[in-house]
């Protein structure tokens, strides 16, 4: 090795070594901070994204538009087949509509008999997806609604049809939607005809698995999945998807939400029902005021 011994170079080298060591130390600290105080670290991350991402929208929009355009062009090629398919489906739909009308009338009569009190209609906020998470670590997206629009952490996010995820991470102008496909996503659901409870568990695949089903014999592929509302995070009865039997012989959910074409999302404004803390109040006559806290009674719940 023919390398000169230059004191100036030596000095630069030792400076570099110290800086390098400090950097490594800083990175270790950063990771520990992230691991120990995850919510605060994520809050910092979100606030950085909140500053940067909305400014990048001008650049993102055309690229996204072009790639979608190419997708659409590809679909033109199959337009004749699609037309035929749609005709067939329309024919089937007519039969279904007839059935639906009959069911609706029957339902109306039954409701009249029951005098069931339906929960007040849920209201929506609509947002646009800004960016993708972009790595396999988290299946999520950033949307353009934030705290100033009145978004609250935990609210359900839907596309036009089915549940897509939940709000996880809020900042002033944007917030993060954690998809059902993310490996940390857990949602309590009900499988519809059999009324079995399950936990919809994301695992970074397009078909989240259904865990903790009490009796799997009662569940058939094709059953409808709706949120159960357990835990009070989501309102109950939001459509999630259908049960399928995957190739690994586990029950999984085919989601109704179309992740491939997700541009707009709806955020369900939801305030949880007041909890029934003292069940005896429901049975006993009401005691004089001042002894028991006023509570909202809803016989249907």
């Amino acid at each position: 090795m023919a390398r000169r011994k230059d004191p100036e170079q030596d000095f630069a080298k030792s400076i570099r070594r110290i800086l390098f060591g400090l950097t490594v130390f800083f990175l270790v600290l950063l990771y520990l901070f992230w691991r120990i105080d995850s919510p605060r670290a994520e809050q910092i991350r979100v606030s950085i994204l909140d500053k940067v991402v909305p400014n990048m929208e001008w650049a993102m929009a055309p690229v996204t538009r072009v790639s979608r355009l190419i997708d659409d062009f590809q679909s033109y090629g199959r337009i004749y087949e699609q037309n035929q398919e749609l005709r067939r489906e329309l024919q089937q739909m007519k039969a279904w509509r007839e059935a639906a009308v009959q069911l609706e009338q029957e339902n109306a009569r039954l409701l009249d008999l029951n005098k069931v009190k339906l929960p007040r209609k849920l209201s929506y906020l609509s947002g646009v997806i800004l960016t993708d998470a972009g790595s396999p670590f988290s299946q999520s997206a950033l949307i353009n609604l934030g705290r100033r629009d009145g978004i609250v952490d935990g609210w359900a996010v839907m596309d036009g049809l089915g549940l897509t995820g939940r709000i996880a991470g809020l900042s002033e102008k944007s917030s993060r939607v954690l998809f059902l496909t993310d490996s940390t996503s857990r949602v309590p659901v009900t499988l519809k005809p059999s009324n079995q409870r399950a936990i919809l568990t994301g695992d970074s695949s397009l078909l989240p698995s259904l865990e903790f089903i009490e009796n799997t014999d009662l569940v058939r592929p094709g059953d409808r999945i709706v949120t159960s509302g357990d835990g009070g995070v989501f309102p109950s009865g939001l459509l999630v998807g259908q049960v399928v039997l995957a190739s690994d012989n586990r029950l999984r959910a085919r989601l109704s939400a179309d992740y491939k074409r997700l541009t707009f999302v709806r955020i369900v404004r939801h305030t949880p029902q007041p909890e029934i803390a003292t069940p005896d109040q429901l049975i006993n006559p009401r005691l004089p005021n001042g002894i028991i806290v006023e509570q909202d009674e809803s016989p249907s719940e």
Binding site: M56, S204, L206, Y259, L262
Partner: peptide, 17 residues
């Protein structure tokens, strides 16, 4: 590279890593 990863073209989990 970052930009390419962030563009919300497909929000499904990647087929090919």
């Amino acid at each position: 590279i970052l930009f390419y990863n962030l563009i919300p073209v497909s929000l499904t989990p990647d087929d090919l890593p």
